[in-house]
Design a protein around this nucleic acid. Structure first.
Lengths: 343, 343
DNA sequence: CTGAAAGCGCTTACAG
DNA sequence: CTGAAAGCGCTTACAG
């Protein structure tokens, strides 16, 4: 049997309530008593039973992390690993635990969240994605649970705590970067069109063009749920023509990497014939050749910030729907080049 | 306030013990009563409080997943994401929750595990890596906690439940694959030499050569903790010579990918000049060009199996130090070719 | 087949 | 500054 507060109390010659209070470092307990109790705790190797504590204090010091429904590729993105790691680290520092909620279907995921929430298992949740018409958000919102998001919510924007980059600005900056390199015909290629991030970046792309007085050419925007063979065909069609775009803003590093290989198939060189800029600055961006100029989103900070804001919410230190917007940063590598095309 | 067993009992006109028993589907309760109680639970939206249950039953239905200390690259490997996802899925199916234990240092990680274990927060642990002289394993073992590993343990091999591939055989098969393509000069390049997997694969590589009567050339074995500039130099030295190896067994897809680019720098074509085979069959293997022939380790099954074996252990259904060895499978792509070199 | 009661290990008013 | 006691929401012998 594990050591309990009772064992400590007996050995230290005090009441259990005194032990409980020294654990919490209550100001009412004398330093002398605290010292004594602490030494006994040390000696006995006491560790508080979290279940018991949670039962009475209604606070399990646990954060549930909600992963997107794993429909193949999305979840293979190492992006999530970085987030999980960052969250885990921040939770550790705040003496919180992290519990994972996942599922292969919406229903499964929702069920998993329900047992955690109503079971008093998690004090709050972090949602790692943002997509349209999300039942999960609906549930969290309806049940008035504590939650925060990484990414800008589609609904209840003014009521949800979230941490995000300015993805519209990032899209604009990416596009401006290419514009500054004298590119005029810039494509935007992406999948996961249902994610908020993507929508915002596309908006920024359009804005940047318009601000430069360049008309948005809908043919240059290829956006789908997956890079299907179908999309490949469309990309081929676009880039095999004489008048092909000289640069592309890619939805993320993974897509950019696919494009790198695709363009090779079409005998287009990067960056000589086509410049590519992408988002995430993941391991892919560093590893492909040519290495990719990519926009770093500071995922580690993003994770740290959601955790902190959510804990503030849980502990009642702050109950406003605060938003934290982190800056991005263009990491220049070898996939972009000054455009020399005549026209 | 959330709905408790008391509310259900009152509304259903039974004792709380009866409600508790119908939740557990006790055979002693009549179907009629169960039906009544269940309908009330449904109506009230009752969800059991897991902390209370855990407090009395000493079983939180939670598995702690121990991630390796995150010293940079190791943890960027999407391999871990696949494991986490697989474990999460299997836990869901078994109505267990998964809690993450991580840390930036050994001490931090150990502390995190301790609070989970002694705090009665996790019923058992899954260790996602296997390395030499691991304090974490020492701790788990000394405290006689329930745990299982993905990968073959360095110590207590006969006392630990683990799930693994036959990495030695995988190493042999990889090497044999190249031998069958008429390669004679085969290099073995890896980092993370302190991981059990790597050691085993290297062993298999050597065995395969010896069985073919080919002497192991120590110059052909490049193994380090990281692909440092130092290792790059060594690789260059080895492959720039006239007598360079015609094939390489790479430690994993990530390393293979680095090699692909490195070889390009040296003007060596893949697979014309050099064949590469690697392990993991991750997203990298599919995406690089040329795409990599890689050994799939069935990570999803691996994860599912550890979860099941650990649960058996926790629930006392099985207390032997069972090992589960899963088969691997060579996925042929475009990085290997019949060796045409003269001799 | 069902219920009353004790107890899991904590925290927190309440009293002193 | 410290202690005795109630109670958090469950489960599980024990009795009937």
């Amino acid at each position: 049997m594990a050591i309990t507060i009772k064992d400590v109390a007996k050995k230290a010659g005090v009441a259990t309530s005194t032990v409980s209070r020294t654990i919490q470092d209550h100001s009412s307990i004398s330093e002398k008593t605290k010292k004594k109790v602490r030494s006994v705790m040390e000696e006995l190797g006491y560790q508080p039973n979290l279940a018991a504590r949670g039962l009475v204090s209604k606070n399990m010091r646990t954060i549930g992390v909600i992963l997107p429904v794993s429909d193949g590729t999305v979840f293979k993105n190492p992006f999530f690993l970085e987030m999980i790691r960052g969250i885990s680290k921040a939770c550790n520092e705040n003496k919180y635990m992290v519990a994972l909620a996942s599922g292969t279907t919406q229903e499964e995921l929702l069920e998993s969240i329900q047992t955690m929430a109503k079971g008093g298992r998690a004090d709050g949740f972090i949602v790692l994605y943002s997509k349209k018409n999300d039942e999960i958000i609906e549930y969290l919102h309806r049940e008035k649970l504590f939650y925060a998001m990484i990414g800008k919510p589609y609904e209840y924007e003014n009521e949800i705590v979230y941490v995000d980059n300015d993805n519209k600005l990032a899209g604009r900056d990416a596009t401006n970067y290419l514009l500054a390199l004298n590119h005029k015909k810039i494509a935007y290629i992406n999948k996961h069109a249902d994610q908020m991030m993507s929508a915002e970046r596309l908006l920024g792309y359009k804005e940047a063009l318009l601000l430069k007085g360049i008309e948005v050419n809908p043919k240059y925007i290829l956006e789908e749920k997956m890079i299907s063979t179908n999309q490949k065909e469309k990309i081929k069609e676009l880039f095999i023509s004489e008048q092909h775009p000289t640069a592309v803003v890619a939805g993320d590093d993974l897509i950019a990497m696919e494009l790198v290989y695709l363009f090779k198939e079409f005998n287009l060189r990067i960056p000589e014939d086509i410049s590519i800029i992408s988002f995430n600055n993941s391991i892919f961006a560093k590893m492909v050749q040519p290495s990719l100029t990519s926009i770093d989103l500071h995922v580690a900070y993003l994770s740290e910030q959601v955790v902190e804001k959510l804990i503030d919410l849980i502990e009642g230190k702050q109950n406003l729907a605060i938003k934290v917007i982190l800056p991005h940063e263009i990491i220049e590598r070898k996939s972009c080049k000054l455009n020399q095309t005549a026209f």
